[in-house]
């Protein structure tokens, strides 16, 4: 065991998702998340409070960024975020998924070209 602490933390992370092993909704790692004006319920877990404290009402972060900042594995972060969405505490600005379309690819191409 070269990194026992990390392994234990990850196991604990699953326990701290309230025993859930799957998110209640389909959430992509790139889905954008914002907080709402709703107040956190008293029974919110430590992980849920950390996620809520991180999220902003005006400026989004992706699910992956939230996972990295609160130091949860993405799978656990997704469960926590999905549950907070179910309770109306977090929201996605638009569609959690956008599919590839000609227009989207044009937009990405133009965006990348403008960065060079």
């Amino acid at each position: 065991m070269t990194r026992p602490r990390r392994v234990r933390d990850l196991v604990r992370a699953y326990v701290r998702t309230g025993g859930l092993t799957r998110p209640s909704r389909d959430l992509d790692l790139s889905a954008l998340v914002r907080s709402t004006t709703a107040a956190a319920p008293v029974e919110a877990s430590g992980e849920e409070r950390r996620v809520l404290a991180l999220c902003s009402r005006q400026r989004a972060l992706s699910v992956a960024e939230i996972a990295a900042h609160v130091d949860l594995p993405p799978s656990a972060a997704r469960i926590v975020i999905a549950r907070l969405m179910d309770h109306g505490l977090l929201t996605t600005p638009t569609h959690p998924h956008i599919t590839a379309s000609h227009d989207l690819l044009k937009e990405v191409l133009d965006g990348l070209r403008a960065l060079v």
């Binding site: 790139s30 889905a31 400026r59 600005p93």
Partner: peptide, 10 residues
């Protein structure tokens, strides 16, 4: 954080 105008991701 992302800019407040950013609403879509890919």
């Amino acid at each position: 954080y992302l800019s407040d105008t950013v609403t879509r991701s890919t």
